[in-house]
Design a binder for these strands. Structure first.
Lengths: 188, 188
DNA sequence: TGTAGCATGTAAGCCGTTACATGATTGA
DNA sequence: TCAATCATGTAACGGCTTACATGCTACA
């Protein structure tokens, strides 16, 4: 039985449980559409490194795509052992509390060091970024419709997670708008 | 002019702008009361490493505390150069979008791999953790009252950030409660 | 014909962690 | 007297990033 791998390994392994096999390149794209919003967007180099390790451990199976033209493309699919280990990990390891690295909050904390406009425009800029992010996630969410080809609803959980993210961005926007009001009016 | 340091360096430097000087030990405690909730809780070893670097760069000044009994305690205070560099960093470097590592969302994404109860109890467990965290932050928030000793309101911005965090935990709770409903009822 | 996208990897290095190491002080 | 807290550091290492390296394919 394999020791626990880093969470990102299981994250990538999990992306291979949606019924298709992917190349490293495609896996990176899927990570960018999903993981990015609440975990990480692993670097290409890490995706390949991770896939090599998972293959080594027998958790995924690599085969060379012969249908592809001349180009060498390797496609990866999760193995039965991989699925088992993922289930074991999900069922038996402690769930950690989310870790947030929030540069905006960090900088706001030091608001007394700069002039009010710096904090204000930082929050404004954050609202803009937030709107962009939200739009990106909305696009992803819209693509997660019920697939009529598939008997099971493959995207039920991805949809829940995406909706969660959208709600989060919405509440974050409201809170930041309130903070802007406080920055503007609070000073006694 | 110093190059940009890692964000955590500026975070610790920022904690020294509240008008007091701290030992490494105390700085770690302050980080645990503030930074922890939206940045990181640096390890003791990192606090000392960071203080050594900041001293080296002249951004903080170290003095041996003679009032302390026999024990060797070094107290650190931010220098004028440190304050300048912090201001420069705050005013002139790009603000990054928050990075979230959310193991609960990650695991929920893979809900189709486990039985519904696993997801359900995971979300329940998260609600418990969330309530604990919220209580901890509430304690911090309550301590951030207006200091009648001090002419300026030192804690205005820390208070804003703490309130932000409390709102975040509240909205997170509401969203997770909704998700639990969906996990329970959605399955067709 | 040249650039964007597809495709795969290695090497070096940064940030931060855990483990290790040491010792004084306070109070139950 | 023993444990908790205060107090300071070094060493090793893990996870992940950036930079580097290479080459094919589609299309404008």
């Amino acid at each position: 039985m394999s020791q626990d791998l880093p969470t990102t390994s299981y994250a990538l392994l999990g992306l291979l449980t949606f019924g298709d096999d992917l190349s490293g390149y495609e896996l990176k794209q899927r990570a960018d559409r999903t993981l990015r919003f609440y975990w990480v967007s692993p670097a290409m180099s890490q995706v390949y490194t991770e896939l090599a390790r998972l293959t080594e451990l027998g958790l995924v199976h690599a085969r060379d795509d012969t249908t592809a033209p001349t180009r060498s493309t390797r496609r990866y699919q999760i193995t039965a052992a991989g699925r088992r280990d993922l289930q074991r990990w999900l069922a038996s390891t402690a769930v950690e509390f989310p870790a947030l690295k929030h540069p905006v909050a960090l900088r706001l904390l030091m608001g007394h060091v700069v002039d009010p406009e710096t904090s204000r425009s930082m929050l404004d800029g954050y609202l803009t970024m937030l709107a962009e992010r939200r739009a990106e996630l909305q696009t992803v969410r819209d693509s997660l419709v019920l697939d009529p080809e598939s008997a099971v609803d493959r995207f039920r959980f991805p949809r829940m997670v995406a909706d969660w993210g959208l709600d989060y961005y919405a509440s974050e926007r409201a809170m930041v708008e309130e903070l802007i009001r406080r920055v503007d009016t609070d000073p006694p």
